[in-house]
Amino acid sequence: MKLHASGEDYLEAVLVLQLEKGMVRSVDIARHMEVSKPSVCYAVGTLREGGFLTTDENHYLHLTDLGQDVAEKIYERHCFFTKQLIAIGVDPETAEADACRIEHDISAETYERLKALGNLK
């Protein structure tokens, strides 16, 4: 299943909230992403069908191995671009928003080369 940017954002949100809270429910995602509960419900269903998420009997969300892998890659990119943009003087709030857009559109090759370049400093 090909993930769109929004699906990647949901997986990243689950990962971030798991790191912060331990357990995550759909309502936590809605608050974190500032989206409606029905939007989260639809996304969770789609991600569950794609094998990226599971839910337990208490309605907690859990990343599958596939979902964890995707979420970690997206989150790593997000952190990298946010840090780099702030380092060149971009306002942190703008850097965060721009990183969120860049993380989805840049190729793996370009990202790896930028990351390697960033490690040289």
Rank of each mutant, 00 (worst) to 15 (best):
G89M: 06
A116N: 06
V44Q: 00
G50M: 06
E76R: 11
A71Y: 15
Y60M: 01
K121T: 08
A13H: 11
T82H: 00
A87W: 07
A97Y: 12
S6I: 10
K37N: 11
D98T: 07
C79P: 03
R113T: 09
S26D: 08
L3Q: 10
D28E: 04
K2Y: 11
G7N: 12
S6N: 09
E103Q: 15
F81R: 02
V90N: 00
V44R: 12
E93Q: 07
A99N: 05
D91G: 08
D9V: 07
S39W: 07
I106D: 03
F80Q: 02
C79T: 12
A30C: 03
D91R: 15
A71S: 05
A43T: 13
Q68D: 12
P92H: 05
R25G: 09
G7T: 05
V40P: 08
T94D: 01
T110N: 02
L3M: 08
R48A: 11
K115E: 07
M33K: 11
L17D: 08
Y10H: 14
H4D: 12
D56A: 03
K2E: 08
E76A: 12
H4C: 04
E12Q: 10
V44W: 06
H4M: 10
S39Q: 12
N119E: 13
L3D: 06
H78Q: 04
G50N: 05
E96N: 14
